Simulated assay, not measured.
Amino acid sequence: MGAPHNDAQVYVHGVGTALPGSPVTNEDIAAHYGMPTVWRQWVDEFIGTRSRHLAVDLASGKITHTLTDLGETAARGALADAGLAAGDVDVVVMSTATPDHLAPATGSRVAARLGITGVPVFQLQSGCTGAVQALEVTQDLLGSGAYRTALVIGGDTSAKHTSPDVDAASVPLEVQVNGLIFGDGVGAAVLGTNPVEGRPVLRHVHTRLVGAGREPGQTVYWFGRASTADGVPAAEDYKTIENAAAPMAADALKHMLHALDWEGGRLHYLLPPQLSSRMTGRTLDHLGLTDTEAISRVTEIGNTGNAIPYFQLELLLPRLRPGDRAVGVSIEASKWIRSGYALEQPA
């Protein structure tokens, strides 16, 4: 999987996104949890993300938006952007690390709300590279000729795993960091084999597990009757992730450029990993693409997990001109996965 397709080109027909509620700033979080000014300054300098959207109301602790709610909104937006209806979709692929339920699958619930029926629906359980994994699966499904139009959805609602009334001062730093980095959101794209003027071709998708022999950089626990996580929802080795992010992104980019023979040509846009604002900056510095425009939204919406590429694509598509090339890179620290995808606007 992941090799460039010669039998059928896959086009990005449309993109849609959804965010829950209003932005929640670092000041909002500091005020809610009663954290001192020095803590807020540390967040600004160490993490860099200024705000995020949460699917949970901090005041009441109630869930305001489910992943299904946001998925429906994003999917409807993608279909509208593509000028297509639910009945035009032949296959649905969704990726998430935080489904609403273990069963039924959130992707099936979204499809049912849209009125999509009688088609295959697949759901991938993965972290930040899940959206790229879904793109790879979808590219191969469409490239095989078995389907013509696919709805791809990716997103996460991480806030539901953290209690709004927790004593933040007693929470380990790695748990605080994990809660501050992430924001909730969902994105979707319509992919198809029919050429559409002004829409780019998905040239290549690449995902590789590179974590053999390495401890996970992040673990999110499932709380059931046999839970052994001692009440900690997630653990993150932020320093290890910070050191590994840029080299992994560089490896993914190098593979993409080599696979497409784009090494000697100009890359117009880069869609970098969105781990945090500070890490995004470090990764861009490491890659050294001074003539390439980076498209990022992490500072204002945080790390939205499986939704990240769709928010970037939403900004990218209107900017593309004939002949433009773009590469998106994503990495996952849970068990160290690198990934990338390449788009080209036909000349």
Rank of each mutant, 00 (worst) to 15 (best):
T68P: 04
T157G: 08
I337D: 07
V137E: 11
S108D: 11
A75G: 08
H255W: 07
P20Y: 00
R214F: 14
F223E: 15
L316S: 05
S334D: 15
M279R: 06
G323I: 09
T73K: 10
E293T: 14
N178A: 15
R76F: 02
H204Q: 11
L271M: 07
V220I: 12
Q274Y: 00
E136P: 01
G115H: 08
H13S: 08
I301C: 04
D230R: 07
I337R: 05
H206K: 09
G61K: 01
D88A: 12
Q312I: 01
G305A: 14
T299C: 03
I29S: 13
G155P: 10
D167M: 09
G83V: 00
V110M: 06
D156G: 09
G34I: 04
S339C: 09
Q312S: 13
V43T: 07
A246V: 10
G187A: 11
E174N: 15
Y11D: 01
A8R: 13
A55G: 15
L202F: 07
G187Y: 04
T219N: 03
E314S: 06
Y147A: 02
I153M: 10
L315I: 04
G328I: 10
L70K: 09
V24Y: 02
R325I: 05
K160F: 00
A150E: 06
K239E: 14
